[in-house]
């Protein structure tokens, strides 16, 4: 196998990894906010349900969650899912898992905003939604960005777990090449890929943090 072929195979895998990464963020960043609202709700049954969900998502391995989502429909419900389901299952598991982590980050961010901010907005006549969107949320985003960055960097590396259910992402390709070629070369290239990917993520997040550094409390 030429390096050319190897790179092209890894490149295809990389596209899949990027898609997992992208769609997981698109799904879990907003979903995490909804989960955080549920967690902060005054309606107790909802709070307990959300707490249980977060607890399970954080207390069990993501790889196991992948298996449950992938095999569950067949073993539990007897549904035929087809091979296209691999990618969908990966996104479902990743989004559900990451939303739980993001929810806890958002929750602590929301709770850390001084109560006086809500009171000032209330007296000035801002509605509840205006208060959240204009006053609270921008301050929450600034406060949680460093923690979100950590999770996003973890996500880049976690995309390789999709290997477990046979999604042909980067790591799956690397392992297949390494096995057929009896060579470490593919692994080295894969490592370089994850490393560069994360360097870009870290750089981008730092830019975002700097843009919000014009004020402090």
């Amino acid at each position: 196998m030429t390096t050319q072929t190897m790179l092209s195979m890894l490149g295809q895998g990389m596209l899949v990894s990027l898609q997992i990464f992208f769609w997981t963020l698109v799904g879990s960043l907003p979903l995490g906010m909804l989960v955080a609202f549920g967690r902060l709700s005054r309606f107790k049954p909802l709070t307990w349900l959300v707490r249980a969900y977060i607890s399970i998502m954080r207390g069990t391995p993501l790889m196991l969650q992948l298996f449950v989502v992938y095999f569950g429909p067949y073993y539990l419900l007897g549904l035929e899912t087809g091979s296209n389901y691999r990618f969908t299952a990966t996104l479902i598991a990743f989004i559900l898992n990451y939303a739980a982590y993001f929810a806890e980050i958002y929750r602590s961010g929301i709770e850390s905003i001084p109560h006086g901010q809500r009171e000032a907005a209330n007296v000035l006549g801002y509605s509840r939604s205006q208060t959240f969107i204009k006053i609270i949320l921008p301050q929450v985003i600034k406060r949680v960005t460093p923690a979100i960055t950590n999770e996003v960097i973890t996500l880049v590396k976690d995309t390789s777990l999709a290997f477990a259910i046979g999604v042909t992402e980067m790591f799956t390709q690397a392992k297949a090449i390494a096995a057929s070629q009896h060579s470490m070369e593919a692994f080295v290239l894969a490592a370089a890929f994850y490393y560069v990917f994360n360097a870009i993520v870290a750089f981008a997040m730092e830019r975002i943090e700097k843009r919000m550094a014009y004020y402090h409390e």
């Binding site: 006086g116 901010q117 000032a120 209330n122 007296v123 006549g125 921008p138 301050q139 402090h216």
Partner: peptide, 20 residues
């Protein structure tokens, strides 16, 4: 009640300005 809020203003001890 929300409409009535325009009748009064409150100045807080800790200002509570919007920092952003």
């Amino acid at each position: 009640l929300r409409a009535a809020r325009s009748k009064f203003g409150l100045v807080f001890q800790n200002f509570n300005l919007f920092p952003h």
